[in-house]
């Protein structure tokens, strides 16, 4: 049976470490999709975040390696100072291109490439953040038929990123962080109920 969803892309900035701890920390070890994550960090912040989250979470969390093949139930963080992209063959690429909207890694760059790779089977998630990165990426996710989830701005430590995303496109779900893990699990489990095979799938 064709799967409704094949990947989750997440963009988060200010307040992101706490948000990711909560969101990823509650995902069950058998969560069936890969999660691709851009968290804005200063280049000096180093590699500690992936290890920290990996300790805390039931799913595997790691920093993305170049040309790594994505695996289910694994969260991949963009390395500091590199853009993270998805190839159509489902492998990851890193890029040292210029900053996009002052950000490297950039949420827009991840979302646009993930939308091209996964089309309607992508879930895009925008969380707390104090800039507008990700809004154009989320719009692309929607244009390609994917699903858009935005953290309720009222619930976010920094509202600008969720607000910019909501201004750029119509989100399918606007929820507080508390409810997001359950929503993701429900969406993924609900695939049995979803309509049949989609063009371009598999």
């Amino acid at each position: 049976m064709a799967k409704r969803f094949r990947a989750v892309a997440i963009g988060v900035s200010f307040g992101g470490v706490q948000a990711l701890k909560l969101l990823l920390g509650r995902l069950p070890a058998d969560f069936p999709l890969p999660l691709l994550i851009v968290q804005h960090l200063s280049p000096e912040a180093g590699d500690g975040l992936a290890e920290l989250l990996d300790e805390l979470c039931a799913i595997r969390v790691k920093e993305a390696d170049e040309q790594e093949r994505i695996a289910p139930g694994t969260a991949y963080l963009a390395p500091p100072n590199y853009h993270l992209l998805v190839e159509r063959d489902g492998s990851l690429s890193l890029a040292a291109d210029a900053r996009v909207s002052y950000a490297r890694p950039s949420v827009d760059v991840l979302f646009e490439s993930a939308a091209a790779a996964f089309g309607s089977t992508l879930i895009g998630v925008i969380l707390t953040g104090a800039n507008g990165d990700g809004s154009s990426g989320l719009r692309t996710v929607k244009q390609m038929g994917g699903l858009a989830i935005v953290q309720d701005p009222e619930d976010a430590p920094a509202q600008q990123m969720p607000l910019a995303a909501l201004a750029a496109t119509r989100a399918d779900h606007v929820v507080p962080l508390e409810a997001m893990t359950a929503l993701l699990c429900r969406l993924v489990a609900g695939e049995a109920a979803a309509a049949g095979r989609r063009p371009g799938d598999g």
Partner: peptide, 9 residues
């Protein structure tokens, strides 16, 4: 060249 990145540019 890896496609995603060159396609973007």
């Amino acid at each position: 060249y890896a496609e995603a990145s060159i396609k973007r540019r």
